[in-house]
Design a binder for these strands. Structure first.
Lengths: 178, 178
DNA sequence: GCCGATTCTGTACGCTTGTACATGTACGGG
DNA sequence: CCCGTACATGTACAAGCGTACAGAATCGGC
């Protein structure tokens, strides 16, 4: 038997599940896959999570916490920015660099579409970003910008070439003006 | 043995798969589920489609053909419209009324993100709409509007309340202007 | 040192899955 | 009428699945 470490174990399992969701999707998640990735026996995943839904929900919750932390960086960058649309476009382009992260967030959206209990997660994520942008723009415009950025996200994933940066900046400028 | 009808059978299977993708997602699709929905024996689905990937690809292709047909109606409406943003917003709001259809299109996006062979499908769909809007607006602005509408789609599905119509119209106006 | 509670883990069960395939049936050309 | 070919279908099989659980190991409180 290995050393006891309930919290560490739980965390390792959740992190492994997060990685795997990016790779195979929420629907492709299995106890065995997670256990292998986390380096724990199969029984451990069922001991800490009563069902697969529990496990995926925990992983997605963990993801939103990470994303929320990253949003603080966005807030800081936007606070000190002279050109909000350009800064926002740059942050988004940077974010899309990490395809795994982008896939994860998309998985959250899709999962939320089908599992109502996950909607608060998706909502919180978007609301947070909306709030950050609203500090530098009109609230309705901020909402529109977030919707647009979600579109940029799915567009970037489903196509080979992403929207180019100047166009992104121009669109955000239009949405955030007036 | 029932009467022979290869093409009809194939079509029934594809349609059943389409329905099911809306209900359980691409990843939730199984031969047996499709066979039951289509009212055909299990062997029929494996006879017409060599693998599940083949089957889901065919179903998604069928879906894009349907959507393409609907886009013709959008083109007609926009051609005769005095207020392009308002008309576009109305069409989109109407489209979102059918949650199953919206879920299907989202599934296509997500599937395309993970399966490169499906990307042409997603691309064609978006390009078509872009072309239609570009007839009444600047091409870059049309691209931006399509990206925005994709955002509206995922936003509507992942949340309980969709973006309201006036905001949608206002955002499209901004994106399509100048 | 002892003990109840918690953590750990290997194994087992019943079920569903994708796919293959042998056998049966309809049909169009000769 | 006959026969090769395409279509139809029930069944079988190995693999993977979620989950349950008995028993071993570890720990903190006393």
């Amino acid at each position: 038997m290995t050393k006891r470490d309930p919290e560490g174990r739980r965390r390792k399992i959740v992190e492994a599940a997060g990685q795997l969701i990016a790779e195979v999707g929420v629907a492709g998640l299995t106890h065995r896959l997670v256990a292998a990735r986390a380096g724990v026996p199969l029984g451990a995943t069922t001991y800490y999570f009563t069902s697969l839904d529990d496990l995926s929900a925990a992983a997605l919750r963990h993801l939103t916490e990470q994303t929320t932390a990253e949003l603080d960086a966005w807030a800081a960058a936007l606070d000190t920015s002279a050109d909000v649309p350009a800064t926002l476009a740059g942050l988004m382009a940077d974010y899309l660099t990490d395809r795994g992260q982008a896939l994860l967030d998309t998985e959250l959206y899709v999962a939320a579409a089908r599992r109502p209990e996950l909607r608060p997660l998706a909502k919180e994520w978007g609301d947070r970003l909306t709030g950050i942008i609203a500090a530098r723009a009109d609230p309705a415009a901020a909402r529109a910008a977030v919707v647009f950025l979600d579109g940029v996200l799915v567009h970037a994933l489903a196509r080979d070439e992403p929207l180019d940066l100047p166009e992104l900046t121009a669109s955000l400028s239009k949405l955030l003006s007036g």
